[in-house]
């Protein structure tokens, strides 16, 4: 059976519009830092780089589709002192992210903390910085 052209077009269109949000470098002012929302999903990538790290997370949108969120984290140096490492998050693992949403409504956020499936909490700062 031939696949209707319109179905192919729809699939391509969906792929185009569902690419991961751009990893632009933001100042904290891009986010509603005093608001924290929680999302749970599967790690697609963990970018360990300056000036900010990134967690790319695939979540269910509640309508049967998967969407990618790009959540900005603190710098590697800060996270190292808070107990993270470059390998703290692995693609494919399920995590919960407490994050501040972006002011512009895009699918981005600012990490407040990450909780792994086994309950381990990765915070933004460790006792040494208190």
């Amino acid at each position: 059976m031939r696949t209707p052209l319109i179905a192919i077009a729809a699939t391509l269109g969906a792929a185009f519009f569902q690419t991961t949000p751009a990893l632009a470098h933001h100042s904290n002012v891009a986010f509603e830092v005093t608001k924290v929302v929680t999302i749970t999903g599967v790690v697609k990538a963990f970018e360990w780089r300056n000036p900010h790290t990134w967690v790319i997370l695939t979540i269910d949108d509640g309508k049967g589709a998967k969407v990618d969120w790009a959540v900005e984290g603190r710098a590697p140096g800060v996270l190292l002192r808070a107990g993270w490492t470059k390998n703290s998050l692995q693609p494919g693992e399920m995590i919960t992210v407490d994050m501040s949403p972006a002011k512009d409504g895009s699918k981005t956020g600012l990490v407040a903390r990450v909780t792994k499936a086994d309950g381990t909490i990765l915070a933004n700062a460790g006792p040494a910085q208190q």
Partner: peptide, 12 residues
């Protein structure tokens, strides 16, 4: 531990 109420200091 309590859920965080902020991700960063409010500085805008």
């Amino acid at each position: 531990p309590p859920r965080p109420t902020q991700s960063a200091p409010l500085a805008d």
